[in-house]
Amino acid sequence: MSDQTLNPETMPEQPERATLEGKNKFLGFWFFLGGETVLFASLFGTYLALRNSTNDGPGSEELFGLELVFVMTMLLLTSSLTSVYAMYHMKNNSFGKMQLWLGVTVLLGLGFLGCELFEFYHYIHGEGFTLRSSAFGSAFYTLVGFHGGHVTFGLLWIIALMVRNAKRGLNLYNAPKFYIASLYWHFIDVVWVFIFTVVYLMGVI
């Protein structure tokens, strides 16, 4: 695999699937997301089973405020669009613009994470609501925390890719890497859609 084959003048239509390695990564990562679906479903199921088990502690209606959740939703939803923009520029082989949009995605993701940490901090110190408060507390922190962990990992992943490839630009070896990182980021948003619906909106209704 020489430089020539990896750095063509113009990117093929689907740079993420132009090599066998790319095709494998693409397919394998989609399958992994299929497995993740079951992982989060198990967490959602556990949460639904335990959401009324407040053990005389605070319940969802007293705890959740919708304003912060709305801001978080907008941040994450917008970051999903910006990562689509990044992939758009990848297909047009404009590396600089891709990096720029990925950078915006990371900033929005950091904003989301900041809000989530603030929320958790408020619950723990303001309301005295922790993992050990009740089965509801355990289920809440585990479900939302797993999502937050995915966000953190996704941010580290995208930052690592951006830094690593900043100097050498786009080629057919790293295009699949960028592409699956963006798939991961979209999946994080998919999960969040269900979290704000099932946990927060249905929690205060």
């Binding site: 992982l39 053990n55 050990r132 585990t142």
Partner: peptide, 26 residues
């Protein structure tokens, strides 16, 4: 993945004081 989650719940119960399977915590 279902086993992964089950094991995490058990781990949180045993090692971090969570209450997934603890009837006294609901």
């Amino acid at each position: 993945p279902a086993l992964t989650v089950g094991l995490f719940l058990l781990m949180f119960d045993r090692l971090f004081g969570a209450g997934f399977f603890n009837a006294s915590m609901g």
